[in-house]
Design a protein around this nucleic acid. Structure first.
Lengths: 145, 145
DNA sequence: ATATTAAAGGATATTTTTGTCCTTATTATA
DNA sequence: TATAATAAGGACAAAAATATCCTTTAATAT
């Protein structure tokens, strides 16, 4: 469903949110360790998410990645689109470019239903809310950190 | 959602079913042309689907790929699992190996719902039924063939 | 029997994704 | 202002997915 890059990205951003709830900026190394992802690759992904404004970053000592009020509106969908592109939500699932409402592929109507549910899953909660659920112990990120 | 190999596989198998409804075996070349997929790659995918018994094949003149009564029970899920593996249905969507019912990742319960719908989409109809819908013009495969 | 046809199989090439490393730019603080 | 810390950026490496080509095997028709 999600590429590895996207999985690392999701895990990382939830971790960043969790730390930012306690007003801590976090470095790429710490993030990668805590979400169990390869550090340089994770750093690249975070770079991209900064470019797409899903998270913020600061260089220098005491710098790192962070989120604040400006990022509260973002959901998993924004993150997924930023990394994997819109393919999960748009285009023919069978790769037919002629596929359309009037010319539907064999999966067309069924895929619409599934996409509705995927969209709901990825937009019902903000990334901040997901981090709060980890903070409260309701859900768990990575290996019991 | 599906790899390219899987997309080609789905398109090919529906085409094979469509031809088999009219008692025609079809060669890899014809299939690839009609579903607009690269021929040698498609041949490899079909090979794998033969090994997994989703379709049948015969060598020699008048040979080709075909399906019959023995293949009527198969659904898209069988095909997808044969090519892409069970990743769409199983395992943590965020790649966390500690994720479980008692230790759920931030997406765990939502993904379960989505997977239910994906599973329904891929098992509600047999591959034969999908081909019949193409045959009747209800749905369309590839470029208006 | 032999020739022909088509799938099967193996080796190889290309592209994309994943992953690493090194240098540069920016910021904080001593 | 110099130093240290950290993200940004670019070049490179490895692995996986996608795609091609050539040889072998099996079946049919003549």
């Amino acid at each position: 469903m999600f590429s590895k890059a996207c999985q690392y990205g999701i895990r990382s951003v939830i971790y960043i949110w969790k730390q930012s709830l306690n007003n801590n900026k976090v470095g790429a190394k710490e993030i990668a360790e805590h979400v169990d992802a390869p550090e340089p690759f994770t750093a690249k992904i975070l770079q991209e998410l900064v470019r797409k404004k899903v998270i913020g970053s600061m260089k220098g000592p005491t710098g790192g990645f962070y989120v604040d009020k400006a990022h509260e509106k973002f959901t998993l969908k924004d993150l997924v689109v930023a990394i994997d592109g819109p393919g999960l939500f748009e285009g023919c699932s069978l790769g037919l470019n002629q596929c359309s409402e009037t010319n539907p592929c064999p999966l067309h109507t069924e895929v619409k239903v599934v996409r509705t549910h995927i969209l709901h899953m990825l937009t019902a909660k903000s990334l901040k809310q997901l981090a709060e659920e980890v903070e409260s112990g309701e859900t768990v990120l990575a290996r019991f950190i």
